[in-house]
Design a protein around this nucleic acid. Structure first.
Lengths: 152, 152
DNA sequence: CTCGATTAAGTTGCGCACGATTTAATCGAG
DNA sequence: CTCGATTAAATCGTGCGCAACTTAATCGAG
């Protein structure tokens, strides 16, 4: 009952510590900070790593498809892809059937990097320290929240 | 059992959609995007809003204390606070007892903005669309994850 | 076929976010 | 008291992240 009262008071609270949005913001940044040294060994930033995850799964993706998968704008992806290209991990070529579209492909170096990246998700999973059930619950709630917040 | 197999396969997966870290990253950005138009009416960005939440709770905070509360570096906060000061919402003054430290205080405009901000957390809570139980679970898991990832 | 609408990618400007470094004030062992 | 170590902010450089806009290619109604 005290719990109930406390909970009701939290609705619409302006206290930082009550905000789910802050827990989310802090968690996201703490995770990318944890990734940083691991990814540094691969020569990648965290968003670059996410792009590579997509490319290791399916070769040849358009900028638009990357944007859909990662929920990022071309204004974010274009410069990022330019840096990956400069680093020799990807190639960019206009599609012949639709000259507006740009196909992103892995270079050999980019494909080879996959093996070095194998250990990364396990290391992070370990650091997060959630049980498989907690991990699944968190993913479920985050996807639900994202879907709700993104609609309309 | 198929579930178990599927779950075991997820451990160490390099598929974007299996990664909790990506769900976290996407959720965090989708929430701040949802905040944007609401905060725009207050003349605030999302990180600026978080700073204001702290100041509405306790007047006079040092940059260091803000950094502890928000888990942000002075290299992030200093320019942000300069913008809030330029916007007339806060004042900055060196502490007389320790000239290294800078006390951040609300101006009258900054204090007044609190009333206009009242509706924001409720609107966002509504948009997130989680039940009170899901909200509490999410907060709990995110704080646990942050604590685990941050330690050592 | 044509020309206005749509679509894909890129550019620009601004505000984070953070590591590395700098400047200045305080602390504290000897 | 003193001077090396620590601490608090700020500065600098780089890379996102996104709104607004531009450029160029494709689409499609008439």
């Amino acid at each position: 009952m005290d719990q109930g009262a406390h909970h009701a008071a939290e609705q619409g609270s302006l206290l930082l510590q009550d905000q789910l949005c802050f827990a989310l913001y802090a968690a996201s940044r703490s995770v990318t900070t944890r990734y940083r040294p691991l990814l540094e060994e691969l020569g990648l930033t965290y968003p670059q790593y996410l792009v590579m995850l997509v490319l290791w799964d399916r070769d040849s993706v358009s900028v638009r498809e990357l944007g859909t998968a990662l929920q990022l704008e071309s204004s974010t992806l274009s410069p990022l892809l330019k840096r990956l290209e400069a680093g020799g991990l990807i190639r960019r070529e206009r599609r012949s059937d639709d000259e507006r579209s740009v196909a992103i492909r892995l270079t050999q170096d980019g494909a080879d990097l996959r093996e070095k990246a194998r250990a990364v998700p396990l290391a992070i999973g370990e650091a997060m320290g959630l049980t498989p059930e907690q991990d699944a619950t968190a993913k479920h709630l985050l996807r639900l929240l994202t879907a709700n917040v993104t609609r309309d």
